[in-house]
Nucleic acid binder design. Structure first.
Length: 886
RNA sequence: GGGAGCAUAGCUCAGUUGGUUUAGAGCAUCUGCCUUACAAGCAGAGGGUCGGGGGUUCGACUCCCUCUGCUCCCACCA
């Protein structure tokens, strides 16, 4: 141990970077397949242009804890880091950045734009990973991957071709969720529905006769008056008695006077609105389906930007929301507006741009999901893959049973371009590259040249690459090719062990990884999925930039130290529970670091001599060894069940309460005095074990102290030391010790209430079966001058301060300091309490049904309660008599 | 509209198949202490009858029903 002057406070800044650099230099995070059992985690790849937020902090802290623990339990642990190209999010950022520079995306070619995007990626791509290093993340950085790395991108293309040739990918015109801001389709999962106030407009549509308006009209309620020009029909419920006269009639669209038929469909709800529905197949998913049933024409009047096009005839070029306001005015002036009502409905918004989603017909690529979903559901239903907490199984099942085909094309440039090549006549071929496409195309038309082929402009949904992640980070060639043998890496690390992620991407990502792994490896991709909660502020609000309630993680780590922040995150984070983050938790983490630091300062300052070990120290060492092993058992159990905050709290209390407050206080020599060899060595051994136990949670401070605890060779690290193994322990010894600490606490209480200084030695008289060996400890910790065990209290003892621990009675003779009236009141109150308790116990025991039905053990327990209570009451009454005599 | 979950000390949470002295922890609070490891600390103390109601049981925080409140997920009522 190095005897250096240590500051009274732990200073994380001095140790964190130093040890992280040391770990990197020695490649301790790096893993290669070997004969050991593997433990692998793939990081949920953060957006390549993202910056670290509190959610990442929680998520990655948990991953690091699990990986570090695995490494310290003999496993070959590998945590693969990387980033996701996040096509929409990144493209949106690049577009915005170019715009700020006065460059419009539309003025660039695809290649020019991609060049800008890659530049942006190179510039910002590594930031978040660098930030993770501050947290202490022990990722195998040599394995860092990016979802658009060449081999990973090729895997995505291969996957597309695979599913296309298998018949699961098709191209079709469908109503998709169109984001008019980023000009792309988005998947159903990327649409956030929000309750939005709007209005329900009641419009008069006049009935037509030979193309001329009659004076008869019907009233139709709509929230989207700007789409009336695209109406293809008016629909009524065939059962609706109010509208029987409309059958076969024609109706005129207001303002443009186009004639449309009245149709009947039981989709229409009679008691909503007026029971009349305008059918606009191009701009509403339901209307589109009605349109198909009734073979209605589709008239698309809204362009990709969300503006009316010339087919609308009026308000051409106006934005849909502007058009809405204007057309209401026009309708009103023309006498078509009957009334308007306040109305609130669920409107879809783009997750990425927050633009209102426009249902839009377009030609997109889809992946059939039903078959894939069935397999993925089975893996979870059978518990091959465990969701933690398992309540998410229900949610998962519900989704997998109601899954719809996945729209995988995006009208973007940043991402993997769809490998479909079109012939001039519109036919297309799907192949991995242009050359293969040419070969395939020539089978359709032998005259085709390479330059005749035109590749599909769209890219694939980001999740279409992320779902390969756990496979492609190890073996990119295997992804997309079920028939290929896995390489050595994949064979060794796959399936991965645990996946730590947030529940909001359970379907986006987790479910799809299960599908992909099933398809290409015939395997599960991971065994356990630990779902973290959302990090919220202490008021329960989601952390968001706009609220400004999210602390900057880097600043937080600078202020409290990475270990402190890790502890703070973990303190209240049961799996699946949202965590209400409060800086006071991080403060608690920092304080704990300080506690550990100071415990070390105490121990490292001792001089060691050959001298006899005090009895109290011998006992303390014995006790702590047993306590340590019992705690290790508990901690292991918590970790096995992914109860990380429970494991943490167990260790926290072991260190703070058991080790510092009890053990060190008992063995601590007087100031300036040396300590005996035996106790010292035991203490160093305990400290070593405690540091190892804590290391996965608090890597930096534990490395710093462990390195100092004894002489270490170059290249040694606590990171690769093995966790202390659980050994057999003596539970009764621990119980006897606890009896002693209870007595000490009671004696401190007596001191406190009587205003006695700790320096004043006391006498203790004990009646009952108190473990003899504990006297040395009690005497030391409670400053006793004398301690006797007796059968009967003498008068002086009897008049002293009294307390009981279990059924053992204690007296502290205190001449003149005991207030008799107070003491009597205290005793009487206790008697009342005990008698109430006894009454309850006796009620049970006298209940025949209880005695007959309850297990013997339970009945015996009640008998014991009864007799103990009786003993206590008797001795308290006895004590009262003594007082009244005196 | 459908589904799931939650409601235990001021706060955040445990409570493992209903029964171990009349419910536990951490934080916060209160009272003493700057006692040479630590005031980012030490010692002591107070505080809940387990959301409301009903039921099952010898016995319920723990099971069932119902009400109330909150959260989340899913959903095409214009």
């Amino acid at each position: 141990m190095k005897n250096t002057e240590l500051s009274a406070k732990y200073n994380p800044a001095e140790v964190e970077d130093k040890w992280y650099a040391y770990w990197l230099k020695n490649r301790f995070f790096h893993s290669e397949p070997d004969e050991r059992e593997p433990y692998s985690i793939v990081i949920p790849p953060p957006n390549v242009t993202g910056v670290l937020h509190m959610g990442h902090m929680l998520n990655n802290t948990i991953q690091d804890v699990l990986v570090r623990r695995a490494r310290m339990t003999g496993k070959n642990a590998c945590w693969v880091p990387g980033t996701d190209h996040a096509s929409i999010a990144t493209e949106a950022k690049v577009v915005a950045k170019l715009k700020a520079e006065g460059i419009d995306k539309t003025s660039l070619t695809r290649d020019e734009f991609l060049k800008h995007a890659w530049e942006w990626k190179e510039k910002h791509g590594g930031i978040i990973l660098e930030q993770l290093k501050k947290l202490g993340a022990s990722c195998d950085w040599e394995r860092t991957k990016f979802t658009m790395d060449e081999p990973l991108s090729r895997a995505v293309i291969r996957t597309f071709v695979h599913f296309y040739k298998k018949g699961l990918i098709y191209r079709g015109v469908r109503m998709v969720n169109w984001d008019p801001q980023s000009l792309t389709a988005v998947s159903d999962e990327e649409v956030i529905r929000k309750e939005t106030p709007s209005k329900l407009y009641y419009l008069r549509y006049f009935i037509s006769e030979n193309g001329q308006a009659t004076s008869d009209y019907i009233v139709i309620a709509t929230t989207r008056p700007e789409t009336i020009m695209a109406d293809a029909a008016v629909c009524i419920n065939p059962e609706d008695p109010r509208y029987q006269h409309l059958r076969g009639k024609k109706i005129l669209i207001p303002l443009i006077n186009r004639e449309i038929p009245v149709i009947e469909d039981d989709y229409v709800t009679m008691d909503f609105g007026t029971g009349c529905l305008k059918v606009t197949p191009a701009h509403d998913i339901n209307d589109y389906e009605i349109g198909i049933r009734h073979r209605l024409p589709v008239l698309d009047i809204i362009d990709e930007h969300g503006c009316l096009n010339d087919k609308a005839q009026i308000l051409v070029g106006e934005d849909r929301f502007v058009a809405r306001k204007k057309i209401v005015k026009m309708l009103d002036e023309a006498g078509h507006l009957e009334k308007e009502e306040q109305y609130s409905s669920q409107v879809g918004y783009s997750e990425r741009t927050n633009a209102v989603i426009e249902p839009r017909l377009s030609l997109q690529w889809f992946l059939k999901m039903d078959q894939l979903a069935q397999g993925a559901l089975a893996r979870v239903e059978s518990d091959e893959i465990r969701l933690i907490p398992d309540k998410f199984k229900n949610t998962y099942r519900h989704w997998m049973e109601n899954v719809r085909d996945w729209c995988i094309s995006r009208q973007l440039w940043w991402g993997q371009q769809i490998p479909a090549w079109y012939l001039p006549d519109g036919r297309f071929v799907v192949e991995e590259d242009a050359q293969a496409a040419l070969v395939a195309a020539r089978e359709l038309d032998p005259a085709i040249q390479l330059e005749d082929l035109r590749q599909d402009e769209d890219v694939l949904d980001t999740w279409f690459s992320s779902w390969l992640w756990p496979i492609s980070v190890f073996d990119a060639e295997k992804a997309g090719d079920p028939n290929r043998a896995p390489n050595a890496e994949l064979a060794y690390y796959f399936p991965t062990n645990d996946l730590i992620t947030a529940p909001d991407i359970l379907f986006f990502w987790v479910a799809r990884m299960i599908m992909a792994a099933d398809e290409f490896c015939g395997e599960i991709p991971f065994r356990n999925v630990y779902l973290t909660g959302t990090v919220r502020d202490k008021l329960g609000r989601k952390m968001s930039k706009s609220l400004g309630n999210s602390p900057d993680p880097i600043q937080l780590m600078e202020q409290y130290g990475a270990d402190g922040v890790r502890l703070g995150m973990l303190l209240c984070s049961a799996a699946g529970n949202d965590i209400l983050f409060d800086e006071s938790q991080v403060e608690q983490g920092r304080n704990f670091c300080n506690k550990i630091w100071n415990a070390y300062r105490l121990v490292q300052g001792w001089a060691v001599t050959e001298q006899e070990q005090p009895e109290s120290s011998r006992l303390a060492v014995d006790w702590f060894r047993n306590k340590l092993h019992r705690t290790i058992e508990t901690v292991n159990d918590h970790f096995d069940k992914f109860r990380i905050s429970d494991a943490l709290m167990t260790m926290y209390k072991l260190f703070w309460d058991d080790f510092c407050a009890w053990y060190l206080e008992i063995i601590k020599p007087e100031y300036g005095k040396p300590i005996d060899q035996q106790t010292f060595e035991a203490t160093i051994g305990f400290f070593d074990a405690l540091l190892k136990l804590l290391h996965p949670i608090m890597p930096f401070i534990t490395e710093e102290l462990w390195q100092n605890l004894s002489d270490r060779a170059a290249g040694e690290t606590i990171m690769l030391a093995q966790q202390p193994k659980m050994e057999a322990y003596d539970a009764q010894l621990i119980d006897r010790f606890d009896l002693g600490t209870s007595v000490i606490a009671a004696l401190r209480n007596v001191r406190q209430s009587k205003g006695l200084s700790p320096k004043e030695a006391l006498k203790l008289v004990i009646k009952g079966e108190f473990p003899q060996e504990m006297i040395a400890v009690v005497a030391r910790m409670a400053n006793l001058s004398d301690c006797v065990i007796t059968d009967e209290f003498d008068d002086q003892a009897a008049a002293g301060a009294s307390f009981m621990v279990g059924t053992i009675e204690f007296r502290v003779p205190l001449t003149g300091l005991v207030d008799e009236a107070e003491e009597i009141a205290k005793i009487e109150a206790e008697i009342v309490r005990l008698e109430g308790f006894l009454k309850g116990v006796r009620a049970k025991l006298s209940n025949e049904k209880f005695v007959n039905h309850a297990p013997e053990q339970v009945v015996n327990m009640e008998r014991k309660k009864e007799s103990d209570a009786m003993t206590k009451i008797a001795s308290l009454k006895d004590q009262l008599c003594k007082f009244s005599k005196a």
